[in-house]
Write a protein that binds this DNA or RNA. Structure first.
Lengths: 154, 154
DNA sequence: ATGAATTTCATACTTTAGTATGAGTGTTTT
DNA sequence: AAAACACTCATACTAAAGTATGAAATTCAT
């Protein structure tokens, strides 16, 4: 299970790196442009050095804010993603993970059994295994731990 | 219940405004200091104008990033804030809400009773009331509903 | 100060949750 | 083919969870 996650991560990484390269290139170009502007201004003597420095400072201040807003926006969405690797390291099987998700949505064993078309005793077995693997005493504690481990969505 | 929330918000607001004022004051001072440095450098002629501009650009770029990180960090926490108004409209009492929070953290009735220094039967009464008020059949469903209603933190 | 709401507790009961054990059926790996 | 694993199911049991009812003490606002 969860075999196609690695390729997904690769594509995401390439996309992220490309954008970073683009932003830094734009930054360097802007810096060079400002150098030229400042040299011209000093030669002509029309504007004071203070004004130029102030403009540069403001521009880079704004650039810093804008870049950070984009980066942190991605980080904001990220923590809601589930950690497939942790599910595997915990030894949770596909069916056990399914049951865990249904527990978190507030269903009883009987309701889970009906939803997955199996007997209630089967669900009880799965629940017991989930509790052992998550080191939890109750299903409510399992929900809490699963959320801490980021293996179920909020 | 929850009568001192408005005063708490006031203090939080004052704290926030103070910090913003402090940051902007620091920014202005830094700007003025850089002006003086640049003037001195130009007079002595030791460093080139490009270097000074580059330093200023980098400094303000970093300042922009740092400020934004703090602002967005607060926004990040905000959506996790609990809706006190909804708690009141649901008719949840102070104690019932306390019990609800302990349920969400994965504790059993017995453990909650020990933590709040009351008997287990008292907790059972509270839990029953919480289930009715949240229209839930089980405590796991109560957790799920409470999170949807944003009356408990994630 | 009186009525309303909250908090507390108990007892008796039903239902659900969880454990332990064993076992049958597939699937995959060695 | 045999071992290992995942999924299924059952039975019997213990432990929690949840309901219903009643009641006493406390808090709080009008």
């Amino acid at each position: 299970m969860f075999k196609n996650t690695s390729t997904q991560f690769q594509f995401y990484y390439i996309y992220k790196v490309r954008k970073t390269i683009f932003i830094f290139t734009a930054l360097v170009i802007a810096l060079l442009a400002l150098f030229q502007l400042s040299k011209y201004s000093i030669i002509t003597g029309n504007s004071s050095v203070e004004t130029i420095i102030a403009i540069i400072a403001i521009i880079f201040f704004v650039i810093g804010i804008l870049i950070n807003r984009r980066v942190l926006h991605k980080e904001k969405i990220k923590p809601q993603e589930i950690d497939h690797k942790k599910i595997e390291t915990l030894g949770l099987s596909k069916r056990e993970y399914e049951v865990l998700c249904e527990i978190a949505s507030g269903l009883s064993n009987k309701e889970i059994a009906e939803k997955l078309f199996v007997s209630e005793s089967t669900i009880k077995t799965h629940v017991s295994n989930v509790l052992v693997k998550l080191d939890a005493k109750r299903r409510t504690q399992a929900i809490q731990k699963a959320k801490e481990l980021k293996i179920i969505p909020y």
